[in-house]
């Protein structure tokens, strides 16, 4: 058996060699850092030596207890869940919709143009994105307040308004990511047999019927895989945009686990172990979400991450 495996590796050595850098990446940057979670059960600072960190006393679940007893625990937890749900709704559904629209375009040049324009925001860095948002929203000549005023409204500063902050944040994130996220669906749609559409057309099917009866079922595998993958990263993504745009007046609607971790570890009191504990809590939530969605996908008879 062992010899057979080695023979197999020898036979496909080029493929295994290609696999190696990726594997190393995951080992170095994903698996080795897991050991760092030990800090959640100690009371250390980032300025200690590795030896000091490893030999310091264990504090058990103290940091977890403090976090669960924190006045803002439920607020941060709720914000994380609400923003993640909104982001999932926007970043999962709108790319499919965009891909469906693109799929209906017949002019290849126009389709390429629209695709390019839709993809471009993805390459804008988060810092630049925040700069654009701030410039658009500033009450000192910003485009949005100017329009609001011209339409007879009040030129309020939306970034410090708890009622509008989430809308601004989600619009900015959506604008940046939707085009790029649609690539997979556009590619999947291109592999659908055109004869199916022709047959449906002859049978008198409408555009909507073709979308729901042919296109969407044909790309269901891609939708499910992308959904599970999105669930996996939903707890990690979007925090940079939040960090760059939020401020004290909107903490109540924008402070999520990641920004809480960042503030706890890197500003003010620099509670490194406490922040690590909160980070670990977030990872466990992410793991539960991915596992649950994978199980649900399997039960529904769809492809899952391991099939």
């Amino acid at each position: 058996m062992k010899q057979r495996s080695l023979r197999e590796i020898g036979r496909y050595k080029m493929l295994y060699l290609f696999l190696l850098p990726g594997l190393l990446y995951f080992i170095v940057f994903r698996f080795v850092p897991i050991a760092g979670y030990v800090l959640a059960f100690k009371d250390v600072t980032p300025f200690m030596s590795l030896e000091q960190m490893l030999t310091s006393d264990w504090v058990g679940f103290r940091h977890f207890r403090e976090f669960f007893n924190s006045y803002y625990f439920w607020n941060v937890f709720k914000n994380t869940a609400v923003l993640a749900a909104w982001r999932l709704a926007i970043e999962f559904t709108l790319p499919i919709l965009l891909a469906l629209l693109l799929n209906e375009l017949h002019s290849k040049i126009y389709k390429t143009f629209v695709q390019t324009v839709a993809y471009m925001p993805y390459f804008v860095s988060n810092v630049v994105l925040a700069g654009i948002v701030i410039t658009l929203l500033t009450t000192n000549g910003g485009l949005v307040p100017t329009i609001m005023k011209a339409l007879g409204g009040e030129a309020t500063y939306l970034l410090t308004d708890p009622n509008s902050f989430r809308g601004v944040l989600l619009t900015a994130i959506g604008w940046k990511n939707i085009g790029w996220s649609s690539i997979v669906y556009v590619a999947a749609m291109s592999s659908v047999d055109p004869q199916l559409y022709e047959a449906a057309s002859i049978d008198g099917a409408s555009k909507l019927q073709m979308i729901f009866k042919i296109t969407l079922p044909s790309i269901a595998f891609a939708i499910v895989i992308m959904f599970i993958m999105r669930i996996g990263v939903i707890m990690n993504e979007g925090w940079e945009e939040t960090l760059l745009l939020y401020s004290e007046p909107v903490y109540s609607v924008s402070d999520i686990l990641d920004t809480y971790v960042y503030r706890s570890a890197m500003t003010g009191s620099m509670r490194y172990s406490y922040a690590t504990a909160v980070g670990l809590f977030k990872c466990i939530l992410g793991l539960i979400l991915v596992t649950a969605s994978n199980v649900v996908a399997k039960r529904l008879g769809q492809n899952n991450m391991y099939s």
Binding site: Y71, E248, P249
Partner: peptide, 16 residues
């Protein structure tokens, strides 16, 4: 132990 929470509340609610 909740000194950070108090700091946040003082800053946030005052502005609000």
């Amino acid at each position: 132990p909740t000194a950070d929470d108090i700091d946040r509340m003082l800053a946030e609610e005052t502005v609000k």
